[in-house]
Simulated scan of single mutants.
Amino acid sequence: MMLSITLQVVFSLVVWLSLYAAFCCRNKHRTYEWSCRLVTLLHGLIVTFLSGYIVLIDGPWPLTHAGAPNTSLQIRLMCLTLGYFIFDLGWCIYFRTEGDLMLSHHTLSIIGMIIVLALGESATEVNAVIFVSEITNPLLQTRWFLRDMGRYHSILGDVVDFLFVALFTALRIGAGAWIMHAVVNSTKTILILKGGALAMYLVSLAFMVEICRFTRRKVKKKYQVWKMMKSDKLPHTNGHVSAH
Rank of each mutant, 00 (worst) to 15 (best):
I211H: 06
M228G: 01
L205C: 15
A197C: 07
M200D: 05
K218H: 05
M200T: 08
F214C: 05
F214K: 08
M229R: 06
C212L: 15
M208C: 13
V225M: 13
G196A: 13
I211V: 15
K221N: 12
Y201L: 13
K218A: 10
K218P: 00
G195W: 02
R213M: 11
M200Q: 12
K221W: 02
I211K: 05
Y223R: 11
A206I: 06
K218T: 09
M229S: 04
S204A: 15
V203A: 08
K227T: 04
K222Q: 08
K218V: 06
S204W: 03
V219N: 06
A199F: 04
A199K: 04
S204K: 05
M228W: 00
G196L: 12
G195C: 10
F207M: 11
R217S: 13
I211R: 09
V219T: 13
Y201E: 10
F214N: 07
F214L: 13
V209E: 14
L205Q: 07
R216K: 09
T215P: 00
A206C: 06
L198C: 14
E210A: 13
Q224M: 07
C212Q: 08
M208A: 15
K194I: 08
A206F: 09
K222A: 07
K222I: 06
R213K: 12
C212M: 15
T215V: 14
K220I: 05
K222G: 04
A197E: 01
T215S: 13
K227A: 08
L205Y: 01
K227E: 03
V219I: 11
F207W: 15
K222V: 07
M229F: 00
Q224F: 01
M228H: 02
V225A: 13
E210L: 15
Y223P: 00
G196D: 07
F214Y: 15
W226Q: 09
M228Q: 12
R213P: 00
I211Q: 07
K222N: 10
F207S: 04
Q224T: 11
K220L: 09
T215Y: 01
A206N: 05
W226F: 12
K221Y: 03
K194C: 05
K218Y: 00
C212Y: 13
K222D: 09
R216G: 00
Q224L: 10
K227W: 02
R217C: 08
V209C: 03
Q224W: 02
E210K: 12
S204Y: 02
E210F: 09
S204I: 03
G196E: 08
Y201D: 06
M200C: 12
M228E: 14
R216V: 07
M229N: 05
K227Y: 00
R216P: 01
M228T: 05
F207Y: 15
W226Y: 08
V219W: 05
S204E: 07
M208G: 04
F207I: 03
M208W: 14
K221C: 03
A197F: 03
M229Q: 15
G196M: 13
R216E: 08
K221L: 10
